[in-house]
Design a protein around this nucleic acid. Structure first.
Length: 737
DNA sequence: GTAGTTGTGGTTTTT
DNA sequence: CCACAACTAC
C-alpha cells in the first residue's frame, strides 16, 4: 500500500495525522487542510495495522461523507471504513438494535442520568420529515383539545425539537413542567410522541435522541458499538448538538479514541440546537486530550483572509485565532452597490462572463445568498444571459406533490403503520374515498383501539359505511395488499408498478402541461431510484427511503458539471471555489432580521460567522454586493447596507451615496427597511466594569466588559443566574443600580 | 364527494 | 409572495 504522502503535510498536520491513541482535538481554521488531515489520519490508522472496520468517521452531510470516502480510497486506505452523518449512523444503529427484545438488558451506572424508557419502534420505521412533523404536531395539538391559535404547531414543534436535542424526553419534561405553558407543552409533547409511536415513525430529532438513550442505557449495545468502532472521528464538531455529543461520548467510552475537528468561528447551526460548548469544552470532557491547531491557510488570497479576519474579530464571544496566508497571489475584494436585485443579478452575470472569458472554469464560480428565495432573480437573469447554472436545492424535488405521493406509497409499503402516508394515498388518485369516509373509519379505529389500516381491512363490518364506500375501500385494500407483497423488490421496480397499477399514471395522462411535467418528474424519480440501486451494495426499499429522508440540498450538488453553483451560505460550508459572489449584504437580510430583533448578541454573532464562512470559501476572487432597493414578498423596500460591510476593513463604494441613503431612509417614513437600525435614539450609554445592572428578563448582573462603539456599543454582563450575556446597549434597556 | 374560489396568516438557515 | 384552510357550487 502506498504510504500517505506525508512530505505534503505540514508539521502540525502531521501531528494530528499520526496521533493514534487517545482523545484529539483539531482546531482547524478555514482552508487549513482539515479534510486532508482526516483522510490521511484514516490511512495512517490502517497503515498502523488497524482494520478499516474499526474506524468510524462522522461528517456533516452525505456529500462530505462520499467525498471523504473517495479521498481516503485515493490515499490507499482500504474500503470498509464507516463514513456517514450522525443521522445515518443513528438509523443504522436503531434499525439493528431498536427492537424491544434487545433493549433493557443492561444498565450502567455511569450513564444513569437518562430515563430508561427506550424505543419501541420496529426496524422498518418511517423517518418523518418537516412536513410530516407539522402534520403530526397539528394532530397532537388538536388531539389534546388545545387551541392552535394559542399553541401554534410550528412553535410547539420548535420547542419539542429543542427538548429532544437536549435529550429531554416527554416524561422527563412532564416532571419539570411547572406552569400553564410548560404543562400544556408537556401534554402536547407526549401526545406527539404517542402519534409517532403509533405510526412506527421517528422524526429527525428522535433518531439522535433514541440512539443516545439506547447507547447510554444498554451496556451491551454500547460495548458492541464501542468495540466495533475503536476509532471515532467527528468532523464539524462545532456544529454538534447535545444529543450528538452524548452519542459521541457513549461511543468512545470504551476506547477513548475520539478525534474531533472543527472551528468555533464556523459554527452556524446554533438555531438547530448546535452547542458550541461541545468544542470549547472538549479538553475538559477528555482530560489529557492532545490539541492541534491548524492556522495556515492554503486556500485564500491574503486580501480575502484579511477581510475575513477583520470581520470575525468583531465577535465578542470568541477565542482569538489567526489566519496565516500561504498564498501570495492577490487581488482586491470587490464590493458593488446596485439599484435593485435585477441589477445585482445582471452585475453578477456580467462579472461571471468576464471571468469565464478569461478562462475560469464555471465549476470554480459560486454565488451565495442568505435565503433560498434570492435565487430567483439570479436564475431569471442567468437564463436570459445563457449562463449555465445549478441551484443547489435538491430537497425541492422531493417536496413536489407528485413525488411525495409516490414516496407515500413506498413508505406505506415498507411500514403499514405509517398512517400519514396512508391518508395521503388513500384518495390519490381520486377513487371516491373522501373525508366523510375516512373520518368514519377513523372513528371506528379509535373505538376499537386498532390502527387505521386495520380498520380499513375490516371496513365491511363498519356499520356507518354504506355499500359504495365499502366496495371502494375493499378495492383499495386489496391493491395495497398486492403492493405490500412486493416490498422486497428493488425500489425502482416497485415505483414503476405503483405508477402503472395505482391509477396515478392514468390520472396524469390528461395531456395538460402540469400533469405532463408531474409524470416526467415521477419518471425522473424512478430513474433516480434505479441509479441508487446501481450505486448501492445492498439496495432495499427501506434503505432507499432512508436515503431520501436524510437527503439534503447540498447532496444534490454536481461538482463535475460546468455550471455556476447557486446556494445558500449554509450550504456553502465545507466547499471552496476560486471565485465567490455573495449577494444581498443588507441589514435585515445578512444579518437576517430575526437575528437582530432582540438584545441577545449571540444570534448576530452567528450571522457574522455565516458571512465569515462565505468569505473564506473563496480562493482568489471575492465579490460582495448589496442593493438600494429590494423586492421582498412582493413589496419594494428601501434597504440599509449590512453592518458587516463596515467591519470588513475595506473601502465601500461611493460612501457619499450610502450615507445619503441612510438620510433618505430617515426622511422617508413610508417605506420600511428590513431592520430597524435605530439611529434616532442617541443614548450611547456608558458602562463601567463592575457596574451592577438590571435586565427585565435576565435580572440582576454585573458588567464584565464594555465595548464602546457609539450607538452600537456592546456590554457583557454576568447575571446572577450564572449566565453571561453579550447585549447591545441600545436594545437591552439595562438599568444601572 | 370534488373541484374551484376566496380569504387568511406567516414568512431563514437544514439533518 | 405563497401555502393552506374554509367555503361554495356543482
Amino acid at each position: 500500500m502506498a504510504y500517505p504522502q506525508n512530505e505534503m503535510l505540514t508539521p502540525s498536520q502531521k501531528e494530528a495525522v499520526f496521533h493514534i491513541e487517545g482523545p484529539l482535538l483539531v482546531i482547524a481554521g478555514p482552508g487549513s487542510g482539515k479534510t486532508r488531515v482526516i483522510t490521511h489520519r484514516i490511512a495512517a490508522l490502517i497503515n498502523a495495522g488497524y482494520s478499516p472496520f474499526n474506524i468510524c468517521a462522522i461528517t456533516f452531510t452525505n456529500k462530505a461523507a462520499d467525498e471523504m470516502r473517495q479521498r481516503a480510497i485515493a490515499l490507499g486506505a482500504a474500503t470498509g471504513v464507516h463514513i456517514s452523518t450522525f443521522h445515518s449512523l443513528c438509523v443504522r444503529i436503531l434499525r439493528r438494535y431498536a427492537q424491544p427484545k434487545n433493549i433493557l438488558k443492561g444498565h450502567s451506572p455511569e450513564f444513569s442520568r437518562s430515563p430508561s424508557r427506550l424505543p419501541e419502534t420496529r426496524p422498518n420505521f418511517s423517518i418523518y420529515d418537516e412536513s410530516d412533523q407539522r402534520r403530526c404536531m397539528k394532530l397532537a395539538v388538536k388531539g389534546c383539545e388545545i387551541d392552535t391559535k394559542n399553541f401554534p404547531p410550528a412553535r410547539m414543534l420548535e420547542a419539542v425539537s429543542t427538548l429532544k436535542n437536549k435529550l429531554i424526553d416527554d416524561e422527563a419534561f412532564k416532571k419539570q413542567a411547572d406552569d400553564y405553558f410548560t404543562k400544556t407543552l408537556a401534554k402536547i409533547y407526549s401526545r406527539y410522541q404517542q402519534i409517532l409511536k403509533e405510526h412506527n415513525a421517528l422524526d429527525f430529532d428522535d433518531l439522535l435522541m433514541q440512539t443516545a438513550f439506547l447507547l447510554e442505557n444498554n451496556l451491551q449495545v454500547r460495548k458492541h458499538i464501542g468495540q466495533r468502532f475503536r476509532f471515532l472521528l467527528i468532523d464539524e464538531y462545532q456544529d454538534t448538538n447535545h444529543a450528538q455529543y452524548r452519542i459521541a461520548r457513549a461511543m468512545a467510552a470504551e476506547h477513548n479514541n475520539i478525534c474531533v475537528t472543527g472551528d468555533p468561528d464556523q459554527s452556524i447551526y446554533r438555531w438547530r440546537g448546535a452547542d458550541i460548548r461541545n468544542i470549547l469544552a472538549f479538553e475538559k470532557d477528555w482530560p489529557h486530550a492532545a490539541v492541534v491547531k491548524l492556522e495556515q491557510n492554503f486556500r485564500s488570497s491574503p486580501s480575502i483572509l484579511r477581510t475575513a479576519d477583520s470581520l470575525i474579530a468583531c465577535n465578542i464571544n470568541r477565542k482569538q485565532k489567526t489566519l496565516v496566508p500561504t498564498i501570495s497571489e492577490d487581488r482586491d475584494v470587490e464590493i458593488s452597490m446596485l439599484e435593485d436585485e435585477l441589477e445585482e443579478a445582471q452585475n453578477t452575470a456580467r462579472k461571471i462572463k468576464e471571468l469565464t472569458k478569461q478562462g475560469v472554469k464555471r465549476s470554480e464560480i459560486a454565488v451565495f445568498y442568505r435565503i433560498n428565495a434570492m435565487s430567483r432573480a439570479l436564475e431569471e437573469t442567468f437564463i436570459n444571459e445563457k449562463i449555465p447554472y445549478q441551484v443547489v436545492r435538491g430537497v425541492e424535488f422531493y417536496n413536489r406533490k407528485e413525488i411525495r405521493d409516490i414516496i407515500a406509497y413506498l413508505k406505506f409499503i415498507a411500514n403499514s403503520s405509517d398512517e400519514l402516508a396512508l391518508l395521503r394515498i388513500i384518495n390519490t388518485p381520486s377513487r371516491g374515498i373522501g373525508k366523510t369516509t375516512t373520518d368514519r373509519v377513523r372513528a371506528y379505529a379509535q373505538a376499537e383501539h386498532i390502527s387505521f389500516y386495520q380498520a380499513l381491512k375490516r371496513a365491511q363490518t363498519i356499520d356507518s359505511l354504506s355499500t359504495a364506500p365499502k366496495k371502494r375501500i375493499a378495492e383499495f385494500v386489496s391493491m395495497m395488499e398486492k403492493f405490500r407483497k412486493c416490498a422486497s423488490q428493488p425500489p425502482a421496480a416497485i415505483a414503476r408498478r405503483i405508477l402503472k397499477e395505482s391509477g396515478l399514471e392514468e390520472s396524469l395522462n390528461t395531456g395538460n402541461i402540469k400533469d405532463q411535467s408531474a409524470l416526467e418528474n415521477i419518471n425522473e424519480l424512478i430513474n433516480a431510484a434505479a441509479r441508487y440501486e446501481q450505486q448501492t451494495e445492498e439496495p432495499s426499499l427501506i434503505d432507499y427511503l432512508q436515503q431520501i429522508a436524510l437527503f439534503s440540498d447540498i447532496d444534490s450538488y454536481d461538482t463535475i458539471s460546468e455550471r455556476i453553483a447557486l446556494m445558500t451560505l449554509h450550504s456553502a460550508k465545507g466547499l471552496e471555489f476560486e471565485n465567490v459572489f455573495i449577494i444581498g449584504l443588507e441589514q435585515g437580510l445578512l444579518p437576517h432580521e430575526k437575528s437582530i430583533r432582540g438584545p441577545d448578541l449571540d444570534e448576530l454573532e452567528e450571522e457574522r460567522r455565516l458571512l465569515f464562512v462565505g468569505l473564506t470559501r473563496a480562493g482568489q476572487g471575492l465579490y460582495l454586493s448589496y442593493v438600494k432597493y429590494r423586492t421582498y414578498r412582493g413589496q419594494l423596500l428601501r434597504t440599509i447596507p449590512s453592518q458587516f460591510l463596515y467591519e470588513l476593513g475595506l473601502d465601500l463604494p461611493s460612501a457619499k451615496q450610502i450615507s445619503s441613503g441612510s438620510l433618505d431612509y430617515k426622511s422617508n417614513t413610508e417605506s420600511e427597511p428590513f431592520g430597524d437600525i435605530d439611529t434616532g435614539n442617541n443614548n450611547s450609554q456608558q458602562f463601567a466594569e463592575g457596574q451592577i445592572v438590571r435586565h427585565n428578563i435576565f435580572g440582576l448582573g454585573r458588567v464584565k466588559e464594555f465595548h464602546d462603539m457609539g450607538e452600537n456599543s456592546i456590554v457583557v454582563v454576568r447575571f446572577d443566574s450564572g449566565k453571561t450575556k453579550s447585549l447591545m446597549v441600545k436594545y437591552a434597556n439595562l438599568i444601572k443600580l
